[in-house]
Design a protein around this nucleic acid. Structure first.
Lengths: 342, 342
DNA sequence: TCACCTTGATAAAACGTTTTAGCAAATATA
DNA sequence: TATATTTGCTAAAACGTTTTATCAAGGTGA
């Protein structure tokens, strides 16, 4: 392990002061002779000098580092979001600290503190979905010494930039599409108990039904966590209904459902139609390919970075910005068109 | 946005010196009266004082932060590795800087420099798989001022701690299993051109064939990148052979293959058997469930952290440690047992 | 009273940078 | 020649901590 070489050492070797070396290496406008400039650069290169960002951050009061907290990096959607966001950050010379919390507000808080204390210039937060006690987190976010952008979901009632897809609209679009295909008995399988996004998707589902005068039947609304096994468990009850279609509020939920369907020897869309959400597993082979509401994580990342960028530049008004993106319906093969029936 | 509160400010408010405050807040053995201790803690709490890690790192010369470079955080396997590793690091009070390079040696190098410069105490590297020009990277790694642990794969010939699964053994196990199930014409679809791991898996495949006296037939060895579309492209040629089974050297490759098979109306394992690799998509519904060589990312993470931990503690010998883990064959439904045939 | 300890606390240096004000020498201007 | 300007460079403060050596005051024992 080589030793780290410092400005001072370079200065020593060149026979000039640290100030001069710093000035030259940072291309600051200053009056150092051409020959000394060259010398400094050469010596720095020869010694593999790399400035110590820690020291630099301390004095510059910025680290050109941003932080991201996601509930679970192992989820495809968040991984993809993290990937896109990191790429985008790097384009602007920012490094991105990706962290994964496990989803509890306590962990979120802990991570947030870690990030702040490590001097990130701003944080992207994908938090506030689970209904754990988030008072401390809320408190912390509202007193943050750095800009924060909430992505994909939000802690309700917090004045903070937000970038997210319209989950209610997504639920509406999915259900509306099923209705248009002739379905009348439409079940849904959503994470409404523990997830704000799930609640909103459910609300969209109900709006679509109401809009065309279909009854909202509690017996058709089923609850599932965002994991495949949870949906798998919940699916049996779904299949016991007379529904001809199901709105599954996430890909994982759809996958759990599919698994169960498959085991029961039911076919999609022959026996039952399915609209899924996220479409983050789009390139994976599903049998059949899933019609789904798509939310492109890249778009989310782009807008989130945009907000952050403005804040960092000191632009961006006093009031929080709120970006709402429209999801897209991707039609594939999991929905059967019903010819007038029921 | 609240202002950051410093040690000095706390000291001011308490009416003591910064040294005293620091000493107390860090529970250093020192002689400060009980009442002042209490006072300091109270004031610090009231003001939400959080020590500035940047400043702290500068003087302590450690940041309790580690770095991770993966080729692609959007891949399930790496996401899972990153998740496990982060959890493990946090248990020991380390934060983990997760970065995703895109896979080129240049990007790896850039990220590595960023991490070092930002003062991480050590780095986990998942690099060296693609055959881009890695001389600069190699150079950098060998002169690193901090410990590095190469995970899952390695830059060949570099004296550095390594933790990885035995890829050759994996290839061998997969092929051996197919042979035991009665297959004789076994194709493989591997990323040997651009990936060391792919090469090793291929070597294992060949060893298994040799061992039982089966011919190594170049016409049965196919090349694919680690992406679904690449495998999808390559699959047509595979299916044009007389192979009764295919060893796919990653889940993504298997998925591309499946997609093609499906489109061609071929069934698995009826028409052709498949053994996949990673099993990282284990919980997803595949039709049928894939028999695969599994490498648990959690195990990888655990050992990698172990190595790092030793280095950080100054233990760990002069020589690099090399941990080789055995993958496991998970039998599911994608292989047909052939009764004496051919 | 003197010497010595103990207690409570602090001053100051250090970490590796950036940045600003200013100095000395060389050169230009009058 | 005297003055002003330019050129080349640096000293020193600052960032927010940690840590060590030291200090003053009060107490103890002889």
């Amino acid at each position: 392990m080589a030793n780290k070489v410092t400005l001072k050492q370079i200065a020593q070797e060149v026979g000039l002061s640290p100030s001069s070396v710093s000035l030259v290496l940072n291309n600051r406008p200053c009056r150092i002779s051409e020959e000394n400039r060259k010398l400094i650069k050469e010596v720095a290169a020869r010694n593999h000098y790399v400035p110590n960002q820690i020291a630099r951050s301390l004095v510059m009061r910025e680290s050109r580092t941003l932080g991201l907290i996601v509930p679970n990096i192992e989820s495809r959607f968040f991984a993809s979001l993290a990937g896109s966001l990191e790429k985008r950050c790097r384009e602007d010379g920012y490094a991105l600290f990706i962290t994964s919390s496990g989803g509890s507000a306590d962990d979120d808080l802990e991570l947030l503190r870690q990030l702040v204390t490590r001097g990130v210039d701003g944080v992207f937060l994908v938090v506030g979905d689970e209904f754990s006690d988030d008072r401390a987190l809320r408190e912390e976010v509202s007193h943050l010494p750095i800009p924060a952008v909430m992505v994909d979901r939000a802690i309700e009632g917090l004045e903070c930039d937000k970038v997210m897809f319209d989950h209610e609209m997504g639920g509406y679009m999915a259900t509306r599409y099923l209705i248009e295909q002739g379905h009348r008995r439409i079940a849904c399988l959503v994470n409404a108990r523990r997830s704000n996004t799930g609640r909103k998707r459910l609300a969209g589902y109900e709006r679509a039904l109401r809009e065309v005068g279909l009854p909202i039947d509690a017996r058709l609304e089923f609850e599932s966590e965002y994991y495949i096994p949870s949906a798998y468990e919940a699916s049996e009850a779904v299949l016991a209904t007379d529904a001809t279609a199901v709105f599954a509020s996430s890909d994982n939920i759809a996958l759990g459902l599919l698994k169960r369907l498959h085991e029961m020897g039911k076919s999609i869309p022959g026996d039952i139609s399915v609209v899924s959400y996220d479409n983050s597993a789009a390139d994976v082979l599903f049998e059949p390919a899933l019609t789904a509401i798509e939310q492109d994580p890249g778009v989310l990342a782009e807008h989130a970075f945009g907000c952050m960028s403005k804040r960092l530049a000191g632009k961006g008004g006093r009031r929080a910005e709120e970006v709402v993106l429209e999801p897209v319906l991707i039609v594939k093969d999991s929905v059967l068109e019903l010819t007038k029936h029921n």
